[in-house]
Design a protein around this nucleic acid. Structure first.
Lengths: 206, 206
DNA sequence: CAGTGTACTTGACAGTGTCAGGATGGCGCC
DNA sequence: GGCGCCATCCTGACACTGTCAAGTACACTG
């Protein structure tokens, strides 16, 4: 067990680096994230991070993983909230996703950035990262399964396809609103309802 | 008018740089694009590009603009193809979009990358760039307007909202399939039909 | 108490965007 | 025709990046 009060051995550098990264990208954006600057922030030499991350990509994967864990935790609470009716849970799961994306634009950009998703890369870090991401996605499949089981969706509907489509729409909306291309931010909630109406035209949402 | 056969004055460097950029990112991805390397490819000094682009960002905007012009041209042909029924045109417009995104992943990434869409930036280049992007988007609004005019969609539907939603879904699908996160590439066409069915449940598509 | 390994350090290198200032050469004006 | 203008291009320099190599400090194990 490493001692925590030590000038030379930092104690838990890995954790500190991830924390500092989140802070940095939140304040200055993803492109401001550099290993050297990070090392300086944490008060350590430029090469020290390499004892905890194989390279920059591995650090990025760890940060992204953190994001997915947080998002997953968030969604899980919504999906398993027995006190709310299922269609309200679905609506809330969409809103929470969009909130998360808009509240952490840089982190969201990283989580779905191309760097972490190209196939070539077969290192353990990115495998872990992608596993956590898929856990997140599965929350939506599960929600649609529940809706079907409760008769709120026809049995013939395909939960996987619905989840893929819903996720695609959410991701697109997050991009549109977050970067302000074809959607004004204040219209987002209305569009979210508009979206869900296409999935379950029967019930009104507020 | 500059002479074209000249060692010192390149003649039409701006165009050559954009062309070389497209070639490079197509072969090696977006992160391989550097001004210095580009200059070398074109056979010019590293500072020469700065006489045609204010900085790297301006070059990126020009490349992205090129992408939007191409996409817009592509869509316009589909939308105005009088020989096809409107619902088929819509379907084709979706397929063409997805094809474009999957065939030019690096260019697509650039076109919708965060670098070119943050608001702060108020230079002419990015304004032009964003104008072309919006032209593209308007093709879809127009298509929905046509569908309404022809009675294929209820008058109460909002073309803008429909276009926003459809575009969001397409963008999300392009991401999902292109980077292979939650969607297999071969399922994409089916999901595209699934998507459109949510917009106009009445007609079958093939 | 020697020694081993982990966490950390400094030095070095190639590559990046971009600022400053100098060279070249085609064009219009006297 | 000669001259200057100025767009176009060049070289030098700087601060910054990721990362390899090789050294140092410290904790723990025999």
């Amino acid at each position: 067990m490493p001692s925590l009060s030590n000038d030379y051995h930092h104690g838990n550098l890995r954790h500190s680096l991830i924390e500092a990264s989140l802070d940095l990208i939140d304040r200055e954006g993803l492109e401001a994230l550099s290993l050297r600057r990070l090392a300086e922030m944490v008060g350590v030499s430029r090469q020290a991070p390499y004892h905890h991350f194989r390279d920059k990509q591995a650090l990025l994967a760890a940060i992204g993983e953190r994001g997915f864990v947080q998002l997953n935790c968030n969604l899980q609470k919504v999906v398993e909230d027995e006190s709310a009716p299922l269609d309200q849970r679905l609506y809330q799961a969409v809103l929470n996703y969009l909130d998360f994306a808009l509240a952490n634009p840089a982190l969201y950009e990283l989580m779905f950035g191309r760097v972490l998703w190209r196939e070539q890369d077969d290192h353990q870090d990115t495998h872990d990262f992608q596993r956590y991401a898929k856990d997140c996605f599965r929350q939506y499949v599960r929600l649609f399964d529940l809706l079907k089981a409760q008769g709120l969706l026809p049995e013939t509907d395909n939960s996987l396809r619905l989840a893929q489509l819903l996720w695609a729409a959410m991701h697109g909306l997050a991009k549109l609103a977050g970067d302000g291309l074809f959607v004004k931010r204040e219209d987002l909630a209305e569009i979210a309802r508009y979206t869900l109406a296409r999935f379950r035209p029967s019930t009104p949402l507020q």
